[in-house]
Design a protein around this nucleic acid. Structure first.
Length: 673
DNA sequence: AAGGAGGGTTTTTTT
DNA sequence: AACCCTCCTT
């Protein structure tokens, strides 16, 4: 292990300049593979060595994975001799930390829950139903996108009507108010609220801001190009007393525009901090010259970028390959076949391979093939875990238990598994409760007295509330035993038999039950590594980081496996051998961006391709399928426009569609899987 | 109130 | 192909 002094000697001059500039604002414009993260970790070490207390340095990473990695690298660099831990966090986790302490100042309950995408969608759905907008004209997804745009621009519900450009915007502004008041009544915040309310807190409560300002002397931000307006304002407020702020970013890698990040923020930095020192990192140590050449050639097609000249420091031993297949099955078979050969005969460790794709639906076939080939792989991305109905149900139980105000979660599970509380009963109660402005529970008995609901339903509801109360008490009394309590809960509500009823196929039943086990395990894992566990804290962590257990332990376990992930999740990572699949118009660039018909949206897709390409250290293979199943039908695809930009001499193979039809025939007569 | 059949809809990316 | 919603039967 190297000492920090030795480490400094390993840096090139601009890196060293960034690392040793310990005061004032710095903007590091860093290309792909130029050691961005290294600058942040080494500077962290430098700051500590210069006598700054570690816990007075805040480093912000973009994802939880990135912050874990930063923590790891810092520990490697400094050893364990630190008197205190530096704070390494994501924006959202930082805001939760602040809000849990200070949110009462804004009149919110400190017991707030964090609603993830799925919950947001169902709140959006009810909000739309309330204002009787036909769902055809606006889907929950559309509404959420608009709300998110407003929130990241700090537009509160009551002012949304001033930011309306058409009828749909207007409906959305009405729905936004409904959506927000539902969240508020539930005692829940969505992801954007975490940032928005923290900002509101800083504006309205100077004392709270001051408390936070006094915690840190230095702030560093990674992946600055993906920072949105609110995030910038939060940071600006935090560093106001000392202006010791370092940001690192690359405008060519801005891929979160759809979430409010704007390339202009990285330019605005010098506007907000005129005295900022600007450092450029242009020496790429990651990719071979050929890979870098392809990446550069592609990204040249984007207008208005920070022109920079990335210098490759590595000679290629092989060319960038482009492979074409008749259909997506051949694509998966061939690529997995090749990986298998390289791994089993060539002795290339599994960890050196990464498969990158644009959408979450693409990996399915690859997974099947990898399993058939008995290759170890990990699918990175939290989505799949949360999309399971069982997990969502259990989380809803925990939320309803931990926060009696959370009627939204309660309604999700009030009759899951079915316990004799039907839809009409719930509707009638809800109507009455809303009319009287009282909690659901308080109107149950009266409603039964008035004959609105049956005595039978009344009894079922009351015993349901008793169940919740019982587990509320248990979890509070003995939080260390949380996993056991959750298991008892699953038994008591007969969730397993619900699964049996819903899924007839035995392998499905097994898989679904396994999810329950996994959930209990993740609770146990949380309890084991936390000194004073609480249900609320578990729910926070789960909302922010995905299921516990995808963290350190799993990282190590998954280390020696082939990595499958979306390009978005691959940001900041690197792999010796990268396969970038599905280079088709409609997929990359995605159809939605093509439909948007703006150069901006295509430019972002191009940057996405750029990010994907620059993940590769030594070998890069890009591929496409000439036909693909869509909505249950096989259709010919169009080669991605980016292929023509990347390779001067690219011409699509004209025979592949014909070949795909022959494959299709063989599938039908059963000679092919 | 529960469960099943049938019909319509859906697909970006993530904290 | 997977999911949700609605309607129908029990």
């Amino acid at each position: 292990m190297s000492t920090p002094q030795d480490a400094l000697a390993q840096l090139n001059p601009p890196q060293r300049e960034a690392v040793t500039t310990l005061r004032g604002p710095i903007l590091v414009l860093a290309g792909a593979g130029t050691g961005k993260t290294r600058v942040i970790t080494y500077r962290l070490a430098e700051l500590i060595r210069s006598g700054i207390r570690p816990d007075r340095i805040l480093s912000v990473a973009f994802t939880n994975k990135a912050s874990r990695e930063m923590r790891q690298r810092t520990a490697d660099l400094l050893g364990r001799r630190l008197p205190a831990k530096p704070l390494i966090s994501t924006f959202h986790a930082l805001c939760v930390r602040i809000l849990r302490r200070e949110i009462a100042l804004l009149g919110y309950p400190t017991t707030f829950a964090i609603y993830d995408r799925g919950d947001q969608e169902s709140v959006a759905r009810t909000a739309l139903r309330d204002i009787r907008v036909s769902e055809k004209s606006m889907t929950p997804g559309d509404l959420l996108a608009r709300i998110s745009r407003w929130k990241t621009a700090a537009v509160l519900p009551e002012h949304a009507a001033d930011h309306v450009e058409n009828d749909l915007d207007f409906l959305a502004s009405v729905a936004y108010r409904k959506y927000q008041s539902r969240l508020r009544a539930t005692g829940a915040l969505d992801f954007d609220d975490l940032l928005l309310l923290t900002m509101q807190l800083f504006y309205e409560q100077p004392a709270a801001l001051e408390r936070q300002q006094q915690l840190f002397d230095h702030v560093q931000i990674d992946e600055y190009q993906d920072t949105n307006g609110i995030q910038f304002q939060l940071i600006e407020a935090l560093v106001r007393p000392h202006r010791n702020l370092l940001v690192v970013g690359d405008d060519d890698q801005s891929i979160y525009g759809w979430r409010g990040a704007e390339v202009t923020h990285i330019l605005n930095f010098q506007h907000h901090f005129p005295e900022a020192k600007v450092v450029r990192l242009e020496d790429n140590y990651r990719c071979t010259d050929r890979i870098l050449a392809v990446a550069n050639q592609l990204v040249q097609y984007n207008q208005g970028r920070h022109e920079k000249t990335l210098r490759a420091h590595k000679q290629a031993t092989s060319n960038v390959r482009m492979l074409e297949f008749p259909d997506e099955l051949s694509e998966a078979e061939s690529i997995v076949g090749e990986i298998r050969q390289l791994h089993e005969q060539g002795g290339v460790p599994a960890r050196k391979f990464a498969l990158l794709f644009r959408t979450n639906e693409q990996p399915r076939l690859f997974e099947t093939e990898l399993r058939r080939a008995s290759l170890k792989y990990t699918l990175i991305g939290t989505q799949s875990f949360f999309d399971r109905r069982e997990i969502r149900d259990l989380l809803a139980y925990l939320r309803a238990i931990s926060n009696p105000q959370d009627e939204h979660s309660l309604l999700r599970i009030i009759n899951t598994p079915s316990r004799g509380i039907g839809d009409s009963t719930v509707q009638k109660l809800l109507e009455r409760a809303v009319k009287q402005g009282r909690p659901l529970q308080h109107v149950v008995n009266e409603a039964a007295d008035d004959g609105l609901i049956t005595r039978r339903a009344e009894a079922a509801i009351n015993s349901f509330y008793e169940l919740l109360q019982k587990y509320r008490d248990r979890l509070q009394a003995d939080p260390k035993n949380m996993a056991h309590t959750v298991r008892k809960l699953i038994e008591e509500i007969y969730y397993e038999s619900e699964i049996c009823k819903q899924y007839k196929a035995p392998d499905q039943q097994l898989a679904r039950s396994a999810m329950l086990e996994q959930f209990v395990d993740s609770v146990q894992e949380y309890v084991d590594r936390t000194t004073s566990p609480t249900t609320t804290d578990f729910l926070d962590e789960t909302a922010l980081e995905g299921p516990a257990g995808t963290s350190e332990k799993d990282d190590k376990l998954a280390d020696d496996a082939i990595k499958l992930m979306t390009i978005h999740s691959a940001k900041g990572l690197e792999f010796p051998r990268v396969y970038l699949v599905g280079l088709e118009d409609g997929l990359l660039p995605h159809q939605r961006s093509i439909d948007a018909d703006s150069t901006d949206s295509i430019a972002e897709e191009r940057r996405l391709a750029y990010v994907a390409i620059t993940r590769a250290e030594d070998h890069l293979t890009v591929s496409r399928a000439a036909t693909r199943m869509k909505w249950g039908k096989r259709r010919a695809t169009k080669a991605s426009r980016f292929l023509y930009e990347m390779f001067d001499d690219y011409v699509p193979d004209p025979d592949l569609v014909e070949q795909a039809m022959q494959n299709e025939m063989q599938t039908i007569i059963g000679r092919r899987r």
